[in-house]
Amino acid sequence: MKDSKHLRPPKAGFSRRDFLKGSGAAAAATAIGEGVSGAVAAEAGSSVVGPGPVSIALNVNGQRRSATVEPRTTLLEVLRYQFDLTGAKPISEDGSSGGSTVLLDGKPVSASTVLALEAVGREVRTVEGLHGDPVPAAFVANDGQQCGFCTPGFVVAVRAFLDKHPSASEAEIRAGLNGNICRCGTYANIIQAVLDVVKGGSDG
């Protein structure tokens, strides 16, 4: 590769390819817009969208919610700042804390590393959607939090873990929750809370 090519601004001028992509973007933006008003939002199809805002519909806690996002908007940002579902926390940028854990089609993911556009057509469940679940009740009963900032991520991760391992042992629970970090160090009480749910205790 020659240096001169390196100095040139990468996107100077027009090419036929760019032009075709650009017109595709406009068409796709319309398609997603229609998704909001009724059609299936999963049709957010193969054309290029962005970098500007597009309208999408998301299925969150069983409800259909519409949002306006840029391609770079994360699922966590939409949940917190557009839907006011502030349970999932922006603790780590790369998802390493587990603080932004939500369920996507029933599986635990870090909402901070999922683009909102990637969640279109899928089922999102946040800690707010676990109202009445035995897991948060067991956290309360066992004092499974101190500052509480990591708690929503833990609660969702525990729910996902128990869905897969309903009769887990303490060792399995400890291994299974490795993706979540509590800086206060309330692990002992958290593990106790999970053991309670396994045993069917704590009103659950």
Binding site: K21, G45, S47, V49
Partner: peptide
């Protein structure tokens, strides 16, 4: 940084969308 986004349904379409310079496009 703001970027454009595409979610193709077939492999060839993804190949067609990718730029020929490292860093200009990324696979997600």
């Amino acid at each position: 940084k703001a970027f454009r986004y595409a979610s193709p349904r077939v492999e060839d379409e993804a190949v067609d969308l990718l730029e020929d310079r490292w860093g200009a496009s990324e696979l997600l």
